[in-house]
């Protein structure tokens, strides 16, 4: 579906459809899922409660990754402290032994590093999962789309979706309550 105008090659990316209220986009999302669409999304100014269920998405799996990150932090801290305090440079100060029984004194740093590693894991794995940073995206070409960060609710459907049809999808979007629908094209 590529169109050549002058020297720019454009390809249909998909549709964006605008909705006015959270309630209407919620119903529309349910209809989209029942309509069998796969590559689509709901863009909203804030996370809508219950939208995961409406779109048929499960709970996020981020927490499991973070658990591993935290564990790595604990182990790093213990290794660092036991390695330096017991192995490399044992010092008997504060009347505390230089063996395993010093572990209460190692607790604060262990705790801090656990949190630090977990937090970094959250930041980086979150960015990887949601595929950011991506400074440019075909959606940003759309006039309708930018409303998502203000007061509009947008459903976007990609042309890559197997159910996508140039006319059928537009009509479908209108039938589920879209106020406006716009075709989005991307430059190649």
């Amino acid at each position: 579906m590529s169109v050549i105008t002058e020297d720019k090659v454009k390809r249909t990316w998909g549709y964006v459809a605008e909705f006015d209220t959270a309630a209407s986009v919620y119903e529309a999302a349910k209809a989209m899922r029942e309509g069998g669409y796969r590559r689509w999304d709901v863009h909203s100014p804030f996370p809508i409660h219950g939208m995961d269920g409406a779109m048929g998405l499960g709970p996020s799996f981020l927490s499991r990754i973070v658990f591993c990150g935290g564990l790595a932090g604990s182990l790093t801290a213990l290794l660092l402290q036991f390695g330096t305090q017991v192995g490399l440079y044992p010092t008997i100060v504060q009347g505390k032994p230089d063996n395993l029984f010093t572990i209460p004194a190692f607790f604060p740093v262990t705790f801090e590093l656990t949190i630090l590693f977990s937090a970094f894991t959250i930041l980086f794995s979150l960015l990887v999962i949601i595929r950011l940073p991506r400074l440019h995206h075909p959606l940003f070409e759309s006039k309708l789309f930018t409303g998502f960060s203000d007061d509009k609710f947008i459903i976007s459907v990609e042309a890559r979706d197997p159910k996508f049809a140039r006319e059928g999808t537009r009509e479908f979007l209108q039938s589920i309550g879209a106020k406006q629908v716009e075709l989005v094209e991307e430059e190649l």
């Binding site: 999304d41 996370p47 995961d52 709970p59 981020l62 950011l132 940073p133």
Partner: peptide, 14 residues
């Protein structure tokens, strides 16, 4: 970072 507010982003973000 190119935030697009899609629910597929929001759910992990939340």
């Amino acid at each position: 970072l190119g935030w697009r507010g899609g629910n597929r982003q929001w759910r992990h973000y939340e």
